[in-house]
Simulated scan of single mutants.
Amino acid sequence: MVKVFRSPARHGYAVEMSPFIPNRVACAAAQYYGIAGCGTLLVLDETETDISLLRSWDWGDGLFDVTWSEANEHVLVAAGGDGSLQLWDTANPSAPLRVAREHTQEVYSVNWSQTRGENLIVSGSWDQTIKVWDSALSHSLTTLRGHEGVIYSTTWSPHIPGCLASASGDGTLRVWDVKCAACRLAIPAHKAEILSCDWCKYDQNILATGSVDCSVCVWDLRNVRQPVNRLLGHTYAIRRVKFSPFSPMVLASCSYDFSVRFWDYSRNQPLLDTVEHHSEFVCGLDFNLHIPNQVVDCSWDETVKIYSPACLSAGAASAAP
């Protein structure tokens, strides 16, 4: 069963499930496909029969990413096309708690650290910088420079404190040590722009990248001369990649080819399934941390969809190739 929420005239860019509330999801969206107009941050709750709107806020520019606090179930951060980060509280229906305006171009990525006791936020911008923030967004703690192109994706390691990965239009995947403000590894991962990266939830050395070249590459940081596997099947740029929180070898990708694909990268034939239920670019994708094999995605077709792909049901993803 697929549950659908429709947001007229708002084109979805990112979705993230709440780390605290099993049925809650946030969606960052924009008017006019993010090219012009305002943005909207939606907080949605899945019910037994559908998806309902809990809260929404409009912003003066498009919103391109969203992340939930790992310390407070009511707090989330959105990334804006005006270079801003906004700290929102679902208990406050009027205005953001704080707005940070240090980036000089579109902020395309924001992520809240998951390692215990850290409570930091990272943002990546078209201004080619990565900024690390405290949990109140009061000011940036560190600015990381080194990418030679637009930064599309920044994500904290779920295993190693002070460690994050970034993906850029310069074709590199980079791993950073925030404590030293240094790039520890720069991998020429694709010969085209990389729009997304994600860490495996089970192995601190495994990351995935999704590129304009239509491929997903899985990397082992202990040997980056070539990818562990190159996942082929998408026919247009891959907008987002996400590892499953329940299966070490499983990941998902969504694309401008209107599809979401599920993979087991340990297999010789890695493609598990292709889901084609959108009529426009699919930009946002996430797994539910509380409900095994439940997935949420969003698209430029003005819909957010929650579903459980059959290929991820018990045993399906772990069967022998």
Rank of each mutant, 00 (worst) to 15 (best):
R267F: 01
R239E: 13
V260Y: 08
P245C: 06
P248S: 11
F243R: 06
P270S: 10
S247F: 14
P245Y: 01
Q269G: 04
S255N: 02
Y256F: 09
R267S: 08
D264V: 00
S247H: 15
P270G: 05
S266H: 09
P245W: 05
V241F: 07
F262S: 03
D257M: 10
Y256K: 08
S266Q: 12
M249V: 13
R267D: 00
V250Q: 01
R240F: 04
S259Q: 15
L271G: 02
V241M: 06
P270M: 08
C254A: 14
Y256G: 00
S244L: 12
R239Q: 15
L251V: 01
R240N: 13
S255P: 05
R239A: 11
M249I: 12
R267M: 03
F262W: 10
F262R: 00
D264N: 09
S253Y: 09
F246K: 03
Q269T: 12
R240C: 13
L271V: 07
R267L: 05
V241A: 08
Y265Q: 01
M249L: 11
S244Y: 08
S247Y: 15
S253H: 10
D257K: 13
M249D: 14
F258C: 13
D257W: 08
V260L: 15
W263S: 01
S255Y: 06
V241N: 06
A252R: 01
Y265D: 03
Y265P: 01
S253M: 09
L251P: 03
R267W: 04
D257C: 10
C254Y: 11
K242H: 06
R261N: 13
V241E: 06
S253N: 10
F262V: 08
N268M: 15
W263Q: 07
Y265K: 04
Y256N: 05
P248C: 07
S247C: 12
R261T: 08
P245R: 04
M249K: 10
A252V: 06
C254D: 14
P245Q: 02
S259W: 11
D264P: 02
R240S: 14
R240Y: 09
S253L: 10
S266Y: 03
N268A: 15
M249F: 13
S259D: 12
P270K: 04
L271A: 04
A252D: 03
Y256C: 05
F246S: 09
V241W: 10
S244K: 07
C254K: 15
S253K: 05
R267G: 03
N268W: 05
S244M: 11
P270A: 07
R261L: 05
A252T: 00
P245H: 03
W263I: 07
R240I: 11
S247M: 14
C254G: 15
M249S: 15
Y256T: 06
N268P: 05
W263L: 02
R239P: 01
P270C: 04
N268G: 13
P248H: 07
A252P: 04
S253W: 06
F262P: 03
R267K: 11
A252K: 01
R240E: 15
F262M: 09
R240G: 08
F258V: 12
S247I: 13
R267P: 00
S266F: 03
